[in-house]
Design a protein around this nucleic acid. Structure first.
Length: 555
RNA sequence: AGUUCAAUGGUGUAAUGGUAGCACAACAGUUUUUGGUUCUGUUUGUCUUGGUUCGAAUCCAGGUUGAACUACCA
């Protein structure tokens, strides 16, 4: 059904498993976010991968909240994550929370103690860190490492019963303090936290660590292919160790390279800082690389899914050009966005030979890319708004817009020729005077006049006002996280431009947040949630390709 | 420094021992009542040194470069 396309390395693994009859041909993945922040475009890559694989191989994909740290997690994030996954176009087969497994996880820990593979350590965090050794020096055994099984059982039960304060004791796996992989030097698997959990409340005061929760949760759900990002590659031996020692369902972990986009940051910690320190208006600020930010800005799920497919999946570190994401957004919006006219920086155009007070209604197509897109009516008169940059007093060659003696077509209307203009005391152009050619009406042009340029415009009498917000990249450098010093030093101070009073077609006043528009010759726009009945606000999603701007840059 | 992973045009990603392809970007045209869109064409690449082989981007060895790992975070 789909065109020939090569497999990524994970698909190859799956197809090999399928061919070998591993798990009886069953494919089951999961997307396991921690509910401690909003999802971003990097998560979108992972979501598309995990849910996409399940769909492709007729399998299942779970959504599982990895909520083992009560102090950072919250239901606000749970709700936003579910909303974002659905908005992207995916539905989970099973919904789980790691916290639902707390009892089983606790029993796994007891099992490990019984097998002599875990012990309670009374050392402080500092002492444990000191005994850990480092990259080129082996660690040393804890003095508590050889406690008896019975003593460990008793102590762990006391930990669970709340007999100790936070940090007083931990449960550690007994592996090898000399192991070159630091994660295998007797990792902590349970810690004491007298904290309220967003789902289990005060039932527990001990919580499992990631490494003692994630793999077992995969195993409990009989996940066949547990896909995560490269930084977890060192955790895999521990993931496998737990499964092997516990003798539970053998889920397998595979790692791929996370998405990096230039001119932005992608870590939840950094995004949280931008929000908390008010560098942006919130998690859904249209400049944020979050799903909610992109949604608010006007990106579509189709565009994001296409992007995820285009960038591929591999193990090589990457830094993807934001231009590719924008290309995917334009590509989709070009097909679906309704064409409308808007003037962002207005000056008046007065048609001197068009009768004062006369109005006519013109018919304009909604989308030239869509035959069934229909038409709308727009009004025309002798006084119009046009874009300031569409007129020049001294136009250079190849300028296909207005200037004294130059002719252009007004989109869907007539051809006009500029005869004069007026400036204010500062020399700024305020009005442009043109004559129009009555026989050049769009659709019934018998004038025989050929023009190079077509401009957008608005009838002053019927145009409505709107606030328009323009966005630029949030950072001035390609990779702020890799730069010297604080990443926030590289924030682009001009990333937001607000145009308080622009003009739009009357029909646009009725827009909803679900609509997508192309403002002719400017770019794609979507209604912002800040809109009220008196004031509509539009966000610029992304600009149109502008080959004139490029031409000018060449000088 | 130890361990692990990776290295293909400017950016991504294919080629699974047999013609280095695709997308974006760039450039030149084409089309166009959006300087949008469409269509066509062009430029640019296998980290390095050896080895195996009739044949290596692919396999092997050494080197180089980059990344990750030393939270009671995930």
């Amino acid at each position: 059904m789909s065109e020939e396309r090569s497999l990524n390395f994970i698909e190859e693994i799956i197809e090999k498993d399928l061919a070998n009859g591993t798990h009886n041909g069953r494919v089951h993945t999961r997307f396991p976010p921690e509910p401690n922040g909003y999802l971003h475009i990097g998560h979108a890559k992972s979501i598309c991968l995990n849910f996409g694989l399940a769909k492709k191989y007729n399998g299942k994909c779970n959504l599982r909240f990895d909520d083992t740290n009560p102090v950072t997690e919250d239901t606000e994030y749970v709700d936003s994550i579910m909303n974002d996954v659905r908005w992207l176009g995916f539905e989970w087969d099973e919904l789980h929370y790691t916290s639902d497994y707390f009892t089983q996880l606790h029993d796994f820990a007891v099992d490990l103690i019984r097998k002599g593979l875990a012990y309670v350590d009374d050392s402080s965090a500092e002492e444990i860190a000191a005994m850990k050794g480092n990259i080129d020096r082996p660690g040393t055994n804890s003095p508590y490492r050889d406690r008896s099984v019975d003593e460990n059982l008793e102590l762990f039960a006391a930990m669970r019963a709340g007999k100790y304060a936070d940090g007083e004791k931990v449960l550690r796996a007994k592996i090898d303090m000399g192991h070159p992989n630091l994660l295998l030097r007797d990792p902590i698997i349970y810690r004491i936290k007298h904290a309220h959990h967003h789902r289990t409340g005060d039932t527990w005061c001990i919580y499992p660590m990631y490494d003692f929760a994630h793999g077992q949760s995969d195993s409990i759900e009989e996940i066949t292919h547990s896909i995560c990002t490269l930084e977890f590659i060192h955790h895999r031996p521990l993931y496998d160790w737990c499964i092997e020692k516990l003798g539970i369902f053998p889920s397998r972990q595979y790692e791929f390279a996370r998405l990096n986009l230039n001119y932005t940051v992608m870590s939840k910690r950094k995004l949280l800082q931008l929000v908390n320190e008010k560098h942006v208006s919130g998690w859904d600020d249209p400049r944020m690389p979050t799903i909610s930010g992109m949604r608010r800005r006007g990106y579509t799920p189709e565009a994001i899914r296409k992007f995820a497919e285009t960038i591929g999946v591999a193990k090589r570190e990457n830094l993807i050009d934001i231009g590719l994401l924008e290309f995917c957004v334009r590509e989709h919006l070009n097909k679906v966005a309704l064409r409308r006219m808007a003037v962002l920086d207005p000056i008046k155009l007065i048609i001197t030979n068009y009768p004062e007070g006369q109005t006519e209604t013109l018919n304009a197509e909604n989308n030239p890319e869509d035959e069934n897109g229909g038409h709308r009516e727009i009004s025309f008169s002798n006084t119009l708004w046009i874009e300031r940059e569409d007129f020049m007093e001294n136009p250079p060659p190849k300028y296909f817009r207005l200037g004294k003696g130059l002719k252009v077509r007004l989109k869907h209307a007539y051809i006009v020729e500029c005869e004069d203009y007026k400036t204010d005391e500062n020399g700024n152009v305020t009005e442009v005077y043109c004559k129009y050619f009555p026989e050049s009406k769009s659709g019934s042009d018998t004038s025989g006049i050929k023009v190079k340029g077509t401009m957008h415009w608005l009838d002053v009498a019927t145009a409505k006002e709107a606030e328009i917000r323009l966005y630029d990249r949030l950072f001035k450098v390609e990779n702020p996280a890799a730069e010297e010093g604080d990443f926030k030093d590289y924030i682009n101070a001009d990333s937001l431009t607000v145009i308080p009073k622009a003009y739009i077609e009357p029909a646009l006043a009725e827009a909803t947040e679900a609509d997508r528009f192309q403002f002719l010759r400017i770019g794609y726009f979507a209604l912002d949630k800040d809109s009220t009945s008196d004031k509509v606000v539009f966000n610029k999603t992304v600009g149109l390709k502008d080959s004139w701007a490029k031409e000018q840059k060449k000088g």
